[in-house]
Amino acid sequence: MKAPDLHALEGMVLDGDEPVFNEPWEAQAFAMTVALHKKGTFTWEEWARALSSEIHSGEARDYYDHWLTALEKLAATKNLTTPGALKTREQEWHQAAARTPHGKAIEL
C-alpha cells in the first residue's frame, strides 16, 4: 500500500515534506485517518473532500480541529459510529480523567 498523498490535502502544513503537529492529539487524529485509509475504510479522495468541506464551512477553527471534525463526520457517514455515541464516550473520558490521580494512566 502506498502512503497517502498529503499534498492532496488543502492547507496541510508541511515542514520539508512532513506534516507538522502542535499537540499530541493532532498526531493521533492524523494517524487514525491514515490507519482507517489503510484499512480501506475510505479513499484518500473521500478524505480530502471531507476535510475540504470542513475548511470551507466558515467555522473558525484550527486546522486539526477541522481535521478531527471531518474525521468524526466521515466515521458517522461510514456507519463506524454515531455522533451520540461519540458525545457519550467523550463525557466518559472526562469523568475518567477527573477520578484518575496524576501520574496514573487514564482508563475508562
Binding site: 484499512k39 472526562h94 477527573a98
Partner: peptide
C-alpha cells in the same frame, strides 16, 4: 488539583479512537 484533566480535543480524540478500536475498525 493533582487529578488529571483532559482538554476537550484530547477527550474527543480518545472517544473516537476507543470506539473505533472496540469495534475493530482500527488497532
Amino acid at each position: 488539583g493533582d487529578h488529571s484533566h483532559l482538554s476537550d480535543m484530547d477527550a474527543r480524540i480518545r472517544a473516537l479512537e476507543s470506539l473505533l478500536v472496540e469495534k475493530g475498525y482500527i488497532e
